[in-house]
Write a protein that binds this DNA or RNA. Structure first.
Lengths: 261, 261
DNA sequence: CAGTGGTCTAGACCACTCA
DNA sequence: GAGTGGTCTAGACCACTGT
């Protein structure tokens, strides 16, 4: 049989029909999170389509983030993972002083999980345009670049690259040491005359680059949230830009903000 | 020839190699945004793979958001669209009074584009759990539900569903009229004793549901940003929850926030 | 009309998982 | 080893876009 290439009438293609059938099972709860779907070969037989067509149906669901395929095991309905919500209050000086924790650690331990932060590199580089702009520096000015990887229960959840004008980082641990001491980054800035008083966060979302997908172990069908964070002191001077990239299925943001009159 | 099912050695599969070659062309600038890629049949010949394999390579790029296929025309390198950045200052009373514009219109017209907002339905419904929680209402309490669609230059860019406790909406235009009058939603709340003084915005990102994909005309490989927005008055009382869903490739968020001590 | 992407088939081998 | 997803081939017809 070599017929039915796509559809006889205005009906949707076979792959969509199969996908719709599976989606209905999931949304109705007949298939619960964690459950395994019928195998591709099974679907192909049940619905009378080629295996590739069944596979295409599964792909459609994976692209919606509804299911996730595990090589050699099966295709599973995706479980809702615990969501880390990063809020503006995590920069609060009080939290820092009371707990001695960095913003990230404060959030993660609040949820009873184990935080780990690795500073994987500290370098001195010319500022990328996007960074120079926000720090009010001429392009290519020198900045310290600190790359950090954040884990919760040993799962990678986000990556943050911090840029600091070299004239600030110079001579302090900011410019050369992975170990920032108690209270971490913002405690050091504070001591250097740059208390964090205002933050600006620019948020967008996109699909991960392959490198990000691998490094953060991001499954198919999961976007990343990108945050361009600018730290600003009491005088309105920006002193630090950090670009965060985080898995969107395990991370979120939560801001409580006073409205100007 | 029926050989090379995947790879001879530990080399990456053919589809990835083709994808990598194309990605390199794009990243090096040899293929610029708007340019058309070689056709699937062309790629299949150039790289000596089956058309399906070339197609798979293109799909990988599409999933990264790098290219977009147009039926009957070709596959094109995606162009960077203009980004609307919605910030916290858009709720400012001053802007509202000076311009008479709603937050959305204020942002869009700031960018010299034409805004349109359609209120497609106003109903009275039991509050969804997520909403009741944030409005400090018992579950299933009655709320007014207003569904709005937002356009820029006649392109759909976001959808917002607003929930208002019925005891507030009752008797005002909020509960029954699409036409909110000058200053729009927040001006009416103000008059009813609910000036917006604090907002809470919870942000996440995910792949769109099929219905969203169609309604917002979202291409493949583009996630959506979801914002759960809560409006809070001078007494700390939440009086409105709006759930925004927006295309992530054309929308972003921008918050400037004072840090608590 | 020719050329492009969209969908489908039938069958194959590889890589991973688990009993 | 049996079963699952991952990749690939070769060839087909459909639907859309242009000339």
């Amino acid at each position: 049989m070599t017929t039915n290439p796509s559809s006889p009438q205005g009906e949707p293609p076979a792959s969509r029909r199969v996908a719709a059938a599976l989606r209905a099972l999931i949304e109705s709860g007949e298939l619960s999170p964690g459950d395994v779907l019928p195998s591709e070969r099974g679907l192909s037989e049940q619905f009378g389509v080629a295996r590739n067509t069944a596979r295409e149906a599964v792909r459609l669901l994976a692209d919606e983030g509804l299911v996730i395929a595990k090589h050699g095991k099966g295709v599973f309905v995706r479980e809702e993972p615990r969501l880390l919500r990063f809020g503006s209050e995590r920069y609060s000086q009080k939290i820092r002083e009371e707990t001695g924790l960095s913003p990230y650690r404060a959030e993660v331990s609040k949820q009873g999980r184990t935080a780990r932060v690795d500073c994987t590199s500290i370098t001195r580089v010319p500022a990328p345009a996007l960074v120079a702009e926000r720090l009010f520096l001429p392009t290519e000015s020198e900045v310290a670049r600190r790359e950090n990887w954040y884990y919760a229960d040993d799962e990678p959840v986000q990556c943050g690259v911090t840029y600091i004008p070299w004239h600030i980082a110079q001579g302090s641990v900011l410019g050369d040491s992975a170990n920032l001491g108690p209270g971490s980054l913002y405690a050091r800035f504070d001591e250097l005359g740059y208390p964090i008083k205002v933050i600006r966060e620019e948020i967008s979302a996109r699909m991960p680059r392959i490198s990000e997908k691998e490094a953060l172990k991001i499954p198919d069908g999961v976007p990343v949230i990108e945050v361009i964070h600018t730290g600003i002191n009491h005088e309105g001077t920006p002193f630090e830009v950090t670009i965060f990239t985080m898995r969107a299925d395990t991370n979120g943001l939560d801001y409580t903000i006073p409205v100007e009159d």
